[in-house]
Design a protein around this nucleic acid. Structure first.
Length: 184
DNA sequence: TACTGGATTCACT
DNA sequence: GTGAATCCAGTAA
């Protein structure tokens, strides 16, 4: 498996979000196939709309992890993008491949579909926390290349995350995958 | 220093 | 479909 090089992440979040589908994510002994992503640029719905100490990695880095805590209990993992700009791609759902027993223990469920079918579920199953924040993609927490998903097999949702008048971000997913998050 | 609300999930009705 | 859980970043004062 070939790790995705840093320059792979130099494009905009909107370009990268669909291209990340089908790629392999690995952390420790757990691996999975990315089946759902969401693009965050500089629109009002994005943390990058106003750069703060928390969101600075979205502007200052690309090809790094941006992991933040929300709702008092959940972690969400993004990959920073957009060399020279600001943006990140949220990993929303993953198809479990290796380390499934460990994921089941962490998630306290035996249901395969419930392990990683949501951004916070993915983080819990893979043991991702704020310790990974600002780390470069690679090493123990890495992304690996895989053939691009044909465009006809990629679904694009309507406008979700609509807040403060924002019409972005866009959610991308592999059509027909049982591992995408439940439609809201 | 004091509020407010969130890129979610789960249990319950 | 609705609401609770739970805590921290961001904002305002």
């Amino acid at each position: 498996m070939r790790p995705l090089p840093k320059e792979w992440f130099a494009g905009s979040a909107l370009e990268l979000a669909p291209r990340l589908l089908g790629k392999i994510v690995r952390k420790g002994s757990c691996t999975g196939i990315i089946v759902e992503t969401e693009a965050y640029g500089t629109d009002p719905a994005s943390h990058a709309y106003r750069i703060t100490p928390r969101s600075r990695p979205m502007r200052d880095t690309y090809g790094h992890w941006y992991v933040y805590f929300t709702y008092g209990m959940h972690w969400c993992a993004n990959v920073t993008a957009d060399k020279g700009g600001a943006g990140a791609v949220l990993i929303r759902a993953v198809e479990p491949v290796e380390g499934i027993a460990r994921m089941k223990r962490r998630r306290e469920t035996d249901a395969l579909k419930e392990l990683c079918s949501g951004p916070a579920k993915f983080c819990e199953a893979f043991g991702i926390t704020g310790k990974e924040n600002r780390r470069p993609v690679g090493g123990g927490f890495a992304l690996y290349d895989a053939p691009d998903i044909p465009k006809k097999d990629i679904g694009v949702s309507g406008r979700i995350g609509v807040r403060r008048g924002a019409e972005l971000p866009w959610r991308f997913y592999i059509k027909g995958s049982p591992f995408v998050s439940p439609v809201r």
